[in-house]
Amino acid sequence: MINYFEIVRAGINTTFQDNGRKKLFHIGIPLSGAMDQRNFRLANSIVGNKVNNPVIEFAYQGPVIRYRGDKINFVITGDVIFKITKGKKEIQGNSYESYSIEDGDEIDIISTNKSVYGYLAINGEFNLKLQWGSCSTNTKAIIGSNNGEKFKDGQKFEIKKINLNQIGKKIDYINTKIEKIRVIKGTNFNYFSDQSKKIFFEKEFTVSKLTDRMGMRLEGPKIENIVNTNIKSEGLVKGVIQVPADGNPIIMLSDHGTIGGYPKIGVVISADYDKLVQLSPGSKIKFQEINLSDAETLFKLYEMETQNLISQL
């Protein structure tokens, strides 16, 4: 019997993701990978996979999936509203809890709740082609699984292997929302007026609708550049906050282009990145300045917290 997922409804932005492509920035290939790495790792852990197994990432409205094949387990992570239909029976699903499904059952991922990304993992492996060591789909660069494209209605994805493990695993975890984003000053911090430097760390910004896997655009008080609104193009990393001539900050996210020419006012710390990407348009945020050594400590704590969650299993 061939086991597969039939995509009844694709959802808004549904793709395969893993932990991304590395060592390719110098040729212009972005990192990609699951936006919220903690929820990605939790999804794999709960169904007993290796932590970097490819999973399905969705944003806002997720897919409706009909399952065909032998009994299998799945889990959904993130703050997600979903239901499972087994014949006439309907079950309201809980995130971070694994469920088993059989031939003909359906998973309806209605939406993420006051957040952006959610993950679906199965205790098995989809039949995916790797490109540069990763299956992660980058729809702008047309790279990765599913020919570099989002899921489409009616597509079928074969599951080539089911890993046998015990069912009924779950963890207790609530996604808290972040309001204060901690930031290390950027390499062009002094390109901005004293007034703007102050505003940057004091005033509120709003996440704009023009936000995707490449970048998060912010609206709020304009940041005034007093030196030069362009720099010679140079490398970028995720979390970098660039300010173009219009004065509205843009935060680079996982699919960002490898080089850019706008001044960098700051960089979001690694410990806050997963929570940052979960902010939906309209969310209000404030930036808080932090130094390097505190940022390193906060990352260690964040990683410890993830490990503790995994050790509940």
């Binding site: 920035f25 110098h26 193009s233 140079e234 490398g235 970028l236 990393v237 080089i259």
Partner: peptide
């Protein structure tokens, strides 16, 4: 990642 550009290396 190593990202060389005109006059920077990240």
């Amino acid at each position: 990642n190593l990202t060389p550009s005109y006059n920077k290396l990240i």
